[in-house]
Design a binder for these strands. Structure first.
Lengths: 204, 204
DNA sequence: GGCTAAATTCAGCGTATGTTGAAACTACGT
DNA sequence: ACGTAGTTTCAACATACGCTGAATTTAGCC
């Protein structure tokens, strides 16, 4: 009358499948409840695994967060590609890249957990500043050549971020309800103007 | 050798001063560490008050959150005023109203805690959807008269939200470093175009 | 067929949490 | 003076947390 549940231990993990499952659960939980709101016990429960195993793989709760904030493969390249599109189409390319990332489950998990955890955890914020500022802002601004390229990149990013917040994070308003092609078509011109249009208010 | 600290109980609260202090501390903590990361004990400690008193005033931890998410007086009116500005200046008026709110400590506390808590707490998200969508989107869209007014309001809001995230929440990039007048001048034209310019991609 | 190393579980530690119920203090009306 | 209502503190509860150390199972290697 001890344990009726078939507890079978030992190596049955194939190439880190279990670790990947834990990580996926953790990302979802960080995004949904934040860092403090995520417990190793609940992660273990959702991943059908003992909490100790989470720590066995990720060492720490913080280590789990660190792993959750690593961008998925292809992320950097996708941005670089969009930032290198012909100037005429670059605005639309950037917006489309971002929207595609938000609508693919794998990268959506990463984006959501990063953006939402960055709100509360200084570590996540710094990580986002790196992944975001360095990769995105640099990818965009290094492809521009005038004096205001840093400003232009920031402006373009601000519009894309705003779209993501309204459409995917808060899911509020008309932008959240329309098909993605329409959202891209509506927002791309503004981004494009930021990239190579005339800027107001730089001299005063 | 019992208690050397002068414990003085009894009514020394003047017109809810203590409750206001608790609420202010709570807002700051919600914004900094999130809902789960905020403990009644730490709130009490920072407000120089016993944790039980927090519950005496706000009944629940959730009640404390509820109170923290109530907009400060003047908030709704400020948005309505900006949304009613002459059409030519409306974009700039909206952007300036938001930036002013973020730079005034009282409303900054509210905005920050609302936006950041909305990331993790469904209750806060719904509250933000109400305060934000209903008040802002409606204030803006009810002043427009064409068929796409809901879309126009959402687009304008997305640009303003993006600016707020980059400049005040994440503090990343050129938009975070420049004086506020410059940020307004740079972003206002895009908002203005969303309000009464030509929109792309609505028919296909 | 034992050996080893990796994978997994288990029991338990110290600590912090939200909440409660009662107690203590103060100001004020009578 | 006195009681009463409103504030504030205190002690304690059950629970949940992060993390550790040892135990247990399994798969592959000689």
């Amino acid at each position: 009358m001890r344990s009726q549940k078939p507890t079978h231990r030992g190596p049955r993990d194939e190439r880190g499948v279990v670790a990947a499952r834990i990580l996926s659960v953790a990302r979802a939980s960080f995004a949904a409840y934040g860092y403090a709101g995520t417990s190793l016990r609940s992660v273990g429960r959702d991943a059908d695994v003992d909490p100790g195993l989470v720590i066995y793989y990720f060492k720490d709760k913080r280590g789990l967060l660190d792993a959750a904030l690593v961008p998925p493969p292809g992320w950097t390249e996708a941005i670089a590609t969009a930032a290198a599109a012909p100037m005429r189409l670059r605005g639309a390319a950037l917006v489309r890249t971002m929207i595609d990332a938000w609508e693919a489950p794998a990268s959506e998990e990463f984006l959501r957990s990063t953006i939402l955890t960055a709100a509360h955890e200084p570590i996540a914020r710094q990580r986002l500043a790196t992944n975001f500022a360095v990769h995105i802002l640099d990818a965009v601004s290094s492809r521009l050549d005038d004096d205001e390229r840093l400003v232009r990149a920031s402006l373009a990013a601000s519009q894309i971020v705003g779209l993501a917040m309204m459409r995917y994070v808060w899911k509020v308003g008309a932008l959240a309800a329309m098909p993605s092609d329409q959202a891209i078509a509506l927002v791309a011109p503004a981004v494009q103007r930021y990239l190579n249009g005339k800027l107001t208010g730089l001299d005063q």
